[in-house]
């Protein structure tokens, strides 16, 4: 179980980005972290995985616990050893390596070679198109294939907690459904917890068990996926749907002016 309580993060010692974020990911659960651009979602993930440091950020308050162990401000390597793996935002494949090499980098820290080979097969099963492209240079894969590769690479680390930052970025709707299906399947089959950052709220809540909504560095709303799916504010502000479930019309200016309830 991952538990953040009152986490505060500043960059460069002055730019405070998170103002006391608390959230929980139970074992085997898929949790979605939603919010507008710049809300601090990626920052939250980096605070957990220890990647803040290379961006001169720091957790200045609160605590992060993983299965009862404090991991606040640990470096990425130690956190990774505990099985917490983050897939970064924006298709960061290793461009000059081929597909299979990319996947193997994901498994670098593992000592069990035969299991690695099995997992490689498993990833190819999840993403059959990657298998065909195993010898192709990753830099020349299409955007969707690269995104699959990034998810596959994270899976190769055999994570206990998988943190995905906008895995649907720039993908066609079909692809989004597919990737999410696979994430859910993986999570179910391996009882892996997933913390998911996503702009595509509908799809994210489709597979998540629980969700948090972030705004300006704070959690402003949380609840089960079903609750959020039917919450009027989430529907209106993040899914662009009006109360009745039809697409919102901006001609009804009154709606547009309505304040979010949590602000």
């Amino acid at each position: 179980m991952l538990e953040l309580s009152n986490v505060e993060v500043s960059y460069l010692g002055v730019i405070r980005v998170l103002h006391g974020v608390s959230l929980r990911v139970d074992d085997g659960q898929i949790v979605a972290l939603l919010g507008a651009n710049g809300a601090g979602k990626s920052t939250t993930l980096k605070a957990i995985s220890g990647l803040l440091r290379s961006e001169e950020g720091e957790v200045t308050g609160g605590s992060i616990e993983w299965r009862g162990q404090k991991i606040t401000n640990r470096n990425a390597e130690e956190v990774g050893k505990l099985g917490i793996i983050q897939a970064l935002e924006g298709r960061r494949v290793f461009e000059h390596l081929n597909t299979e090499e990319n996947l193997l980098v994901g498994a670098y820290q593992r000592r069990d070679r035969s299991a690695v080979r099995d997992d490689l097969e498993m990833v190819y099963q999840y993403f059959p198109s990657l298998k065909e492209l195993r010898r192709n240079t990753a830099g020349y894969l299409s955007g969707g294939e690269q995104q699959m590769l990034v998810v596959g690479r994270a899976i190769m680390a055999s994570p206990q907690l998988l943190m995905l930052d906008e895995p649907s970025l720039g993908l066609a709707p079909m692809m989004v459904e597919e990737i999410y299906g696979i994430i859910r399947r993986f999570s179910r089959e391996h009882e892996t917890s997933v913390l998911l950052v996503e702009q595509n709220v509908r799809v994210a809540l489709g597979i998540a068990d629980y969700g948090y909504v972030m705004e300006n560095g704070r959690i402003v709303l949380d609840g089960s996926a079903d609750f959020l799916k039917h919450n009027e504010d989430v529907r209106e502000f993040y899914m662009g749907l009006s109360a009745t479930g039809t697409r919102k019309s901006y001609r009804e200016v009154k709606h547009y002016k309505r304040r979010k309830r949590w602000l």
Partner: peptide, 12 residues
């Protein structure tokens, strides 16, 4: 050499 941070994110 390609992407230091992404390697770090793999826990390496």
């Amino acid at each position: 050499a390609d992407d230091q941070m992404a390697v770090q994110a793999c826990g390496i």
